[in-house]
Amino acid sequence: MSPLRRFLRMPEALAGTAILAVLFAMALAAPLIFPGDPQAIAGPALLPPFQDWSLPLGTDRLGRDVLAELFHGARTSLAVGLAAAAAALAVGAIVGTLAGFAGGLVDDVLMRITDAFQTVPSFLLALAFVSAVGPSLGVVVVAIALGAWTGPARVARAEVLSIRERDFVAGARVIGMHPLEIAFREILPNALPPVLALSSVIVAAAILTEAALSFLGLGDPNRVTWGGMIAEGRAVLRTAPFLSIIPGVALVLTVLGVYLAGEGVIETTAVRRSLS
């Protein structure tokens, strides 16, 4: 059975993929369906959902279109989640490969740094970083990656430690290959699968962290975010709970989708690897 067929047979994986597909469609379509500024006033304030079909999910305290905000928020969530996870995986893979391959003092220093980053709770780290540097999309991405690269670094290092003893690495040394080329061209690609297996968890965590930062008002002020929407809705939680519930549900579904689809991919590739 092909990996794709096996993947399609897992209902959880399919559900996760469906959620992600909708999410990506929302993110991509946002500027087409809602071309204007999503933060502009679109109607009367606090219009409940399903009342006016030009504003299907109603409006918030300032009369902004909740559906438009939801679509544009999907863009931010996905962009930040994917960028932060990519940065964390790249940094982690590079640090882990250098530590595992070089060994000795380099390994000690790099792993001590990794320990240091790991002891600080990643959310506090992100909070401190954004507070110090100031909120913008790039800073939020770096702030989240700062607390997320240590896991990939450890996994990459462990994998590199076992790969570097294999004959093909000795073979690369015998033909006179430069150590950096051995580390990054021969070893790293072979160490990558277990590192990439962490990506779904990291993306999901990054999306949550972004939402939490935005909730605390530390997101990019020029962008709509789900975390920011929840924070907005909190003030009118009793009278208009939908303002918090709608972005909250979107967030939960997104994290769930990322996680389920990611697990599906891991499971299918793990089976394939054990078969080969």
């Binding site: 073979g171 040394r173 033909i175 006179g176 072979n190």
Partner: peptide, 22 residues
């Protein structure tokens, strides 16, 4: 040393393990 290695080569026992699997 890397340059001198051109003159001194090796063939391993397990030809599958001796090459990068990719």
């Amino acid at each position: 040393l890397r340059a001198r290695r051109a003159r001194l080569q090796m063939v391993f026992q397990d030809p599958l393990a001796a090459f990068n699997p990719r």
